[in-house]
């Protein structure tokens, strides 16, 4: 059971209040009419599905009903950070492999994981992948 920090409510709530909505930072094509079948299929169906760090979209379905993003490890299930849509993750697979040490400011969540509250001042944004 996850204990998830909603960046809109600024509170920790139980997993059952939330719904996962799949991979985050998928940009809708600017001109869908101009997409080839290949591009449109990739946009609709093809996903990263990594074993490890995953940025994903969640909705606080029975809370504030707003969408936000979570950076989570898909093997340990540890939630590394939550941040609002439009923001960039401070923790990525690249930043973790560069610096195994995790950023110190954050809160310890119920399952013993560390969770930063949105964008942290001290954490360096090293994301190169994120698009949105």
């Amino acid at each position: 059971m996850f204990h998830i920090y909603c960046p809109h409510c600024a509170e920790h709530r139980e997993e059952e209040e939330f719904h996962p909505k799949g991979q985050a930072h998928i940009a809708r094509p600017m001109d869908p009419e101009a997409c080839s079948d290949e591009e449109w299929g990739d946009y609709l169906f093809f996903r990263d599905n990594p074993r490890g760090i995953h940025h994903e979209l969640w909705v606080h379905a029975v809370g504030c009903r707003k969408f936000f993003n979570i950076t989570r490890n898909t093997v340990s299930y540890e939630i590394l950070e939550t941040y609002k849509v439009g923001e960039q993750p401070t923790i990525t697979a690249e930043s973790l492999s560069q610096d195994k040490k995790m950023t110190a400011d954050g809160v310890t969540v119920a399952d013993g994981g560390l969770q930063t509250e949105g964008e942290s001042d001290s954490a360096v944004n090293t994301s190169k992948e994120a698009k949105v």
Binding site: F2, P20, Q23, R51, Y77
Partner: peptide, 13 residues
Amino acid sequence: DGYNGYGQRGSYA
């Protein structure tokens, strides 16, 4: 379970 996971375990809910 609705989220992606490789952990061979899911949520109690």
